[in-house]
Design a protein around this nucleic acid. Structure first.
Lengths: 240, 240
DNA sequence: ATCTGTGAATCAATTCACAGCC
DNA sequence: GGCTGTGAATTGATTCACAGAT
């Protein structure tokens, strides 16, 4: 993860290191939040606190975008938001299509986080004809046979796999055949896809296994910090 | 992870490197699948193919568990499954409690992957008293005030946050107060938690942003592989 | 005085390459 | 001959530390 599990393929002459790239969305989220609360400037130290990393890393990460800070002063929040989202390609919408209208697919379709971040759900498909025609979050469920049409007509570039594990490889094949360039996989399966497509797997079972492992470690290891120390880091969440 | 975003804290004298650890669940999943299909032995090469990594990495990763392979032959599938799940602490159940009975919470509760992997959902809580009393996947929704009771009486060690972003920090505080040792966070927020607790965030928005980034890269970069090459890697999914 | 930007140093992860065992 | 296990080499990421800008 993190990054973690199978990570996106394809290299391109990588401008920004993978590890730094994976932190940009975190910074963006913090900055967007601060911007909404009318914070105009912040230092690498402050951003580091919020993100839970150290200041040197923040400065290094941001330096890959260019020299957008002001020495002796800090960074302009709005400008950074602009530059990070530009780098991440968020000045255009990336339409997504969800494959699978089961529990997970429905939850994802209703999850406002996608569309609010510039990834509108342009379509939902399922193999089950009983589900076809229903509306989820304002989008009509269509049959998986229509995938190619949907991808073409709505200029979909990202496919989200929310099928049972057994159906995931088939879904991936159909997404690739339909022309998507990136796949976000929620099924607990390792997918085989062409190298020209980037994949990212979110394996909830694996996340839990790793947490179980950490807990196990912390039980045995009876050195250091036996009690619950409260971090000095300030809150990120807004006061509602 | 992938990983990414904020990764688990706490160090302990780490036996297995973080990066290797994050791949163990992937191997486990592949091996469990193969075991179910009566495959008894496999080589590091074969496992590497399935996992989409190279053989040296597989051997190095597995060597952290001990020398469980046989030179000239390969690895015994069942024995590896046993050793990996032992290392990951999966010979006991890790009860989880889900905070938030909205779309995402419901989808997660219905997601069979948790309990089938030794992470039974022992409780679901919500602030909304209208939701209290309903049953989701056979588990009764209880009020968040009962969190401490649930965690104690069911020996819950992992909390899953499935609330809106604004409520996530509060949920985290309550989970920590109730005594969980690990948190899996689905809200798009950076949480502030005590260092003794391990956290892992699954930020769907961030995953999509990164995919958007990769697609953007692949558009501009018109060197190499313009068409869709099909990988030579064999299928992982079972023939149904 | 303060805080960025970045080479240089350190630390971690990956890959190589081969000795050792079956 | 085939395949593991692992030191050594390499590549990548993080941290240090300070020159340079305001």
């Amino acid at each position: 993860m993190p990054a973690n599990g199978p990570v996106a393929r394809r290299e391109a002459r990588r401008r920004i290191p993978e590890a730094a790239l994976s932190r940009l969305p975190v910074y963006l989220q913090i900055l967007t939040d601060l911007k909404g609360r009318s914070v105009e400037r912040l230092s690498s130290d402050e951003l580091a606190e919020h993100a839970g990393v150290n200041a040197a890393k923040v400065r290094k990460d941001l330096s890959y975008l260019g020299s957008y800070g002001t020495r002796g002063v800090g960074y302009d929040v709005s400008y950074l938001v602009y530059q990070i989202s530009r780098e991440l390609g968020l000045h255009q919408d990336w339409n997504v299509v969800i494959v699978g209208a089961g529990n997970l697919g429905r939850a994802l379709a209703n999850f406002h986080g996608f569309s609010s971040r510039g990834f509108p759900v342009a379509g939902i498909v399922d193999v089950d004809r009983d589900k076809v025609g229903r509306r989820i979050a304002g989008v009509e469920v269509r049959h998986v046979d229509d995938l190619r049409d949907i991808v073409r007509s709505c200029a979909v570039s990202i496919g989200v796999i929310a099928t049972p594990a057994e159906a995931a490889q088939g879904a991936a094949d159909q997404l690739v055949g339909a022309g998507v360039r990136s796949i976000l996989n929620f099924a607990s399966t390792v997918l085989t896809i062409p190298d020209a497509i980037s994949v990212r797997s979110v394996d909830l079972g694996a996340e839990l296994q790793i947490l179980g492992y950490y807990e196990q470690q912390s039980r045995g290891g009876a050195e250091a910090a036996p009690g619950v120390r409260t971090s000095a880091r300030p809150r990120t969440s807004p006061a509602p």
